[in-house]
């Protein structure tokens, strides 16, 4: 009985320690099937990728209210949704931060921000922070372009929105647009992975 107790205690310890380490070193690579989710949108409704019957894919963006880099990209994210939702690639934004650490990213603050900016896309909260580690997101903003296939939503692009975090007018390469255009045209994406400066996701 004592041994059983010990084993049980050990199991609890192991479970607890794994629950507290969020390993993001994994995450998706190009070609992986991305998990679907059921996350709360700012209108209170739950949203899943599976809800989008007509979508050809998704521009999933981990972003938030409080990171200046994310804020600098807000207008460009809205433009992406306006341009590509009708072509079958809507933006789905997910706020991954722990709101106790970042009160400025609270659900109410997300609502307020979405309203004042006129977000045309869902702005979901990753409650419990279960989804972003599966994707391997490390920062905001961090983009994953998914292509809907019979096998599931395949990761086709990971990284930056474009090559200028400061000034939309000075952008040379619009990575996300080029990637989605290539998917729509059935062509190979030139740059499948890019890097961008961002704010670490707050745990």
């Amino acid at each position: 009985m004592k041994t059983l107790k010990t084993i049980f205690m050990l199991a609890v310890v192991v479970l607890m320690s794994s629950a507290f380490t969020t390993d993001v070193s994994g995450g998706y690579e190009i070609g992986d099937i991305a998990t679907d989710f059921k996350l709360k949108n700012i209108d209170g409704k739950m949203v899943s990728l599976a809800d989008y019957k007509d979508a050809k894919g998704f521009i999933v963006i981990f972003t938030c209210n409080t990171c200046p880099y994310a804020v600098a990209y807000e207008d460009r994210i809205i433009e992406l949704d306006k341009k590509y939702a009708k072509k079958g690639y809507p933006v789905v934004a997910i706020m991954p931060n722990n709101t106790e650490v970042k009160p400025g990213d609270s659900f109410d603050s997300m609502k307020a921000r979405a309203r004042s900016k006129g977000f045309t896309f869902p702005y979901l909260i990753d409650e419990g922070q279960k989804i972003y580690p599966q994707y391997g997101a490390t920062k905001t903003p961090h983009v994953y372009i998914l292509e809907k296939t019979k096998a599931g939503n395949v990761v086709q692009y990971i990284g930056a929105i474009d090559d200028n975090y400061q000034d939309a007018a000075q952008v040379n390469t619009k990575y996300v647009e080029e990637a989605v255009d290539a998917l729509i045209d059935g062509k190979e994406i030139k740059e499948k992975k890019t890097r961008a400066i961002g704010c670490s996701i707050k745990v």
């Binding site: 490390t138 920062k139 961090h142 990284g159 930056a160 090559d163 975090y165 990575y175 740059e191 890019t194 890097r195 961008a196 400066i197 961002g198 704010c199 670490s200 996701i201």
Partner: peptide, 15 residues
């Protein structure tokens, strides 16, 4: 940033 982040470290995602 996409050009200089990997030059600082291949492992840096940019956060």
């Amino acid at each position: 940033m996409n050009s200089w982040i990997p030059k600082i470290s291949e492992s840096w995602t940019g956060a």
